[in-house]
Design a protein around this nucleic acid. Structure first.
Lengths: 211, 211
DNA sequence: TCACATTTAAAACGCACGTTTAATTTGCAG
DNA sequence: CTGCAAATTAAACGTGCGTTTTAAATGTGA
């Protein structure tokens, strides 16, 4: 028998990833989960806490796995931007342990988390996994010694934006692509197409560096 | 004497660009504009119509100006991705006619429009200015004959995502950058930093093209 | 089986929102 | 000045939300 708490989590993940956090009401979630409305507040305390619980379930798998991959690469004598970015693929695949469609779900949740409650997720992530994020940044810096920290900071966030937009708008974009020139794109394929784009963007020569 | 309708538009632009469309209530707008709550529905019919009016005011300046720039470049024997992207800078500056801080306002509005009401803005833009968008796409294609339409489609939307994220999260990111390593970034500077990133990402070699 | 803590259930609360109504004020042509 | 349309105002409406309350049902250890 499936516990009420688990039914809520599963339904919340699904609806949050499809429509965003604020656009999803507790009534939709409890209806989808086939549980009573009040049980969310009983088991999680508030909607905000439910959101954090949903995110934490994925973060606690993804970020430690990312840390392992980064440390492995850090032992190499040298590495490229692409190498560092590729460290994310295995941890993403590891999210299948959480849920069969975990990788897709997580990327979408990330997108909504950043675009809706910008500050909260970043604070939570930095508090619990700040050293992983920091390490990632340092390795990108090592792979691109010609770039200033400031330029790198912005380019990493441009990359984040590209990824989040692709995930959140992914379904709509896939439909447009299909209608415009009849080529379908798989959800997982989007992330693979993203990597060379982001890698080239990050490593681009900085025009300002000539100053 | 400033008309009520104009006071509403000015206040709405400001608040929409700061907090997004859905996060901004009509009560906030009418309070900021110092007009009666009901006057929005009297002058614009609905909140949705107000949003469209706000967006249209910028689109009708930006997109025709972009068309002019693109046509000028198209007459050249050849051009690069950067050249095509640079066509956007003058039309952005032209938005100062609409409002002193028009360029910044417009980019932020774009960001929220895409992340909140994804379908609507695209539909509106394509209906009224579809040929401009189409022309932009074709010129990027011409500048990158080695890339498939599918790859180009996704990379252009990655670029859009990078820009929108930078604008919407721009204020928060600027504060983080300042706190993390003490370097301030101007709002207008963000767009300039974006161009080389996006240009390199779009023109990157496509690993899939080897297949 | 009994007593007690845990969990579920139905209903209501208070709040903020976009919108509508109806009355009043304002602007202006004849 | 008069009369009428346009504009403004204050108040209320209906809806959906997250949350709380109170009672009933369920599970559990002695």
């Amino acid at each position: 028998m499936v516990k009420t708490k688990d039914k809520i989590i599963l339904a919340a993940e699904k609806l949050f990833s499809e429509h965003g956090f604020e656009q999803t009401s507790l009534r939709q979630i409890t209806s989808e989960a086939d549980v009573n409305l009040a049980s969310v507040n009983y088991h999680f305390g508030s909607k905000k806490s439910l959101i954090q619980a949903v995110m934490a379930r994925y973060q606690m798998v993804f970020l430690p796995a990312l840390e392992v991959e980064l440390q492995r690469l850090a032992e190499q004598p040298n590495y490229t931007t692409t190498d560092v970015l590729a460290c994310m693929t295995q941890p993403l695949i590891a999210l299948r342990q959480v849920r069969l469609d975990g990788p897709v779900i997580y990327l979408r949740l990330l997108g909504y988390a950043y675009s809706e409650i910008q500050g909260h997720l970043r604070k939570f992530t930095m508090t619990h996994y700040g050293h992983v994020v920091q390490g990632f940044f340092e390795m990108i810096q090592t792979a691109n010694p010609h770039l200033s920290r400031k330029t790198l900071f912005w380019r990493l966030h441009f990359s984040l934006g590209a990824m989040l937009f692709a995930q959140v708008s992914g379904q709509a974009l896939r439909e447009i692509a299909l209608a415009d020139f009849g080529e379908a794109t798989q959800a997982e394929e989007t992330f693979l197409k993203l990597l060379p784009f982001v890698a080239a963007g990050i490593s681009a020569v900085d025009p300002e560096a000539q100053n």
